[in-house]
Design a protein around this nucleic acid. Structure first.
Length: 567
RNA sequence: CGGGGUGUAGCUCAGUAUGGUUAGAGUACCUGGUUUGGGACCAGGGGGCCGAAGGUUCGAGUCCUUUCACCCCGACCA
């Protein structure tokens, strides 16, 4: 491509609302333009990068036997009513009516559509397993789209769906897909981690997220210092503590503790480690038609993990409560303890099961119990893992320590089981001629988010640094002075040579100054730029490496072979 | 959906407290010239329903009302 003919509107200044490097540079370098909140146009350079990522995805999917399809973007609302997700998704589903007044939604994900496609067409175990995928625009009417391509309303996702006759076969496919996803991210040149994840509303027996490591990531992940363990903080677990602080030995007693409402005050009052205190976090949990106050108890040194808490209650949502609401049902904020089970439902963190020498609220203004042995609650209380892991906690699988890092969720794979096949009545006949719902898996990967992720990990102050597998063009030939006929000729010759060798090459033949064109090349981030300039009088050109920003001189005769060797 | 902010040239922004010539700068763009190794210089030029609607006023980018859009923090996020 000739730069003089290319549609690459680069700018010196970034849009004022861009904060992430990926957003700033993709906009400045002429890859994307914003249309409305969460909506972007992909310009020629972006389109090329997207196609490269898609090609890699297609190659890896082919290797695991997945077949590409493309389902309609506009989907009948009926299907969403059938699965029950028309309510669950709520406003994120963009709904509209056609001229015949039928209700449709823009597809935010395609479980329903894919199940509908397969049901009644695949009807025998003999035709299983089956893995179908597509790469397609999705639309979710997010309350707050942000960060450029990172969280758009319209985005490109690769979504795969697998159908099986047994959970064992699903397990096999799940592992194969995880391996394929790792391969894709490795090929893209990304530093990532596969972590255990909360399965959320979609349900199923397990899920993993593929996280690209980046400070700008919206998710916090806990990773082990020794082994492969990693988990989204929403799902992270830990081993029992290695070193336990010295216990405050005391007989069970009620103790006057005026004005000690917080854990800090309580620990200070008794001079004990917060480990031996019981923290109460009161929340209102919301079900479909009703809501109630639930008291969550964790050790004073821990915090409540709300996603875990939500899972423990099987509610739809968890919201805060006010002190007034607590007082209304006879609770004493600051002094709430687990020994009174009458006023509200309790959920106690499993780490407190059987704990001894504990201090907890006495449900009476100004009093705490000391010397509490939690095992008296074993038969009456509901225990669940609801505490958030802390940095420094021990890995659940080895003796390594957990530390936190930020990640961008670029993939999420689920073992769905029959979550969708059952309500949608998608069944096959097994060996015994018996009707069974499909055992399913679903595997998502954010293609447009991957574009942004590459730049989050590969950029510097000058702009983008595309990896070889993602670069829109591998080589940029920059003719320093377009009025110098010798330079033009040398540049054109190399351009033709590289094109004939099927190298993706850009020829910067614009009538601009050297500095302008270099800045532009750095901003766009071509892996290599050949500078045809002042050294040509000695028969030399320079090879500029974008990643290292170094220039190397070599003869005109040698440059072609050198490039072919590098790419 | 709560809280906050911003809408003026393609882009980044002044101007709005206190209403008053023909609405500005930088950048980008066009023409001519000089220049050609790190986003050049000189000269000339095109480009605006000052987000939209209504109102107050002799007069509104500026004041009032309504509305829309976009952004930020939070909630939400298969």
């Amino acid at each position: 491509m000739r730069r003089s003919r290319a549609f690459i509107p680069t700018t010196k200044e970034a849009p004022s609302d861009a904060t992430l490097p990926s957003h700033i540079f993709l906009a400045r370098a002429g890859f994307i333009t914003q249309v409305a909140a969460g909506l972007y146009n992909y310009l020629p350079l972006a389109k090329r990068v997207i196609r490269k990522i898609e090609n890699i995805v297609n190659e890896e999917m082919a290797k695991v036997g997945a077949q590409e399809v493309e389902l309609s973007f506009v989907t009948p609302a009926d299907l969403w009513a059938e699965s029950g997700r028309i309510e669950k998704f709520g406003k994120e589903l963009l709904r509209f009516k056609d001229r015949k007044n039928n209700l449709f939604v823009l597809g935010p994900t395609h479980e329903e559509m894919m199940v509908d496609l397969v049901r009644n067409r695949v009807t025998s175990y003999k035709n299983l397993p089956l893995n179908l995928y597509q790469i397609k625009t999705k639309f979710r009417d997010e309350a707050r789209p942000r960060f450029g391509l990172m969280r758009g309303r319209e985005f490109i996702m690769k979504d795969a769906y697998s159908f099986h006759a047994s959970t064992e076969d699903l397990d096999r496919e799940f592992e194969a897909m995880e391996a394929a996803y790792k391969k894709i991210l490795t090929r893209l040149g990304l530093d990532f981690r596969v972590v255990e994840a909360d399965s959320g509303a979609i349900g199923g027996s397990g899920s993993k997220e593929l996280m690209v490591i980046a400070d700008s990531g919206e998710d916090t992940i806990a990773i082990c210092s020794k082994c492969e363990y990693g988990a989204n903080i929403e799902a992270a677990s830990r081993s029992a503590r290695g070193s336990i602080p010295e216990a405050p030995e005391a007989d069970f007693n009620k103790f006057l503790t005026p004005d000690t409402k917080t854990i800090d005050e309580l620990a200070e009052f008794f001079k004990v480690d917060p480990y031996y205190t019981v923290k109460c976090v009161a929340k209102r949990v919301v079900y479909e038609d009703e809501s109630e106050i639930v008291l969550f108890f964790v050790r004073g040194c821990d915090n409540l993990q709300e996603v875990k808490a939500l899972n423990a209650t099987e509610a739809l949502d968890i919201v805060d409560v006010t002190e007034e609401e607590l007082k209304e049902i006879g609770l004493e904020p600051g002094f709430i303890g687990p020994l009174d089970q009458a006023k509200a439902k309790h959920v106690i963190d499993s780490d407190l099961k059987g704990a001894t020498n504990m201090i907890c609220g006495a449900n009476e203004d100004g009093y705490h119990f000391i010397g509490v042995n939690m095992s008296i609650l074993d038969d009456v209380a509901y225990f669940a893992d609801i505490a958030e892991v802390n940095e420094g906690d021990i890995c659940p699988y080895c003796d390594g320590e957990l530390s936190f890092t930020k990640g961008i969720e670029v993939g999420h794979i689920f073992k769905l089981g029959t979550t969708y096949s059952k309500p949608l009545k998608a069944e096959f006949l097994d060996e015994n001629g018996k009707s069974q719902p499909f055992i399913m898996g679903t595997y998502g990967m954010g293609i447009s988010r991957l574009v942004a992720s590459v730049i989050e990990q590969h950029h510097d102050e000058s702009g983008c640094i595309w990896t070889k597998e993602t670069a829109p063009y591998m080589v940029n030939i920059m003719i320093s002075n377009i009025k110098d006929e010798a330079q033009v000729e040398a540049g054109e010759t190399l351009y033709e040579q590289l094109q004939n060798a099927n190298v993706e090459v850009m020829l910067d033949d614009r009538k601009e100054r050297f500095g302008f064109k270099m800045k532009d090349a750095e901003l766009i981030g071509f892996p290599y730029t050949v500078i045809v300039g002042k050294e040509l009088v000695d028969g030399n050109v320079q090879l500029f490496d974008r990643a290292t920003k170094t220039k190397e001189s070599m003869s005109v005769a040698a440059i072609f072979d050198k490039l072919m060797e590098l790419i």
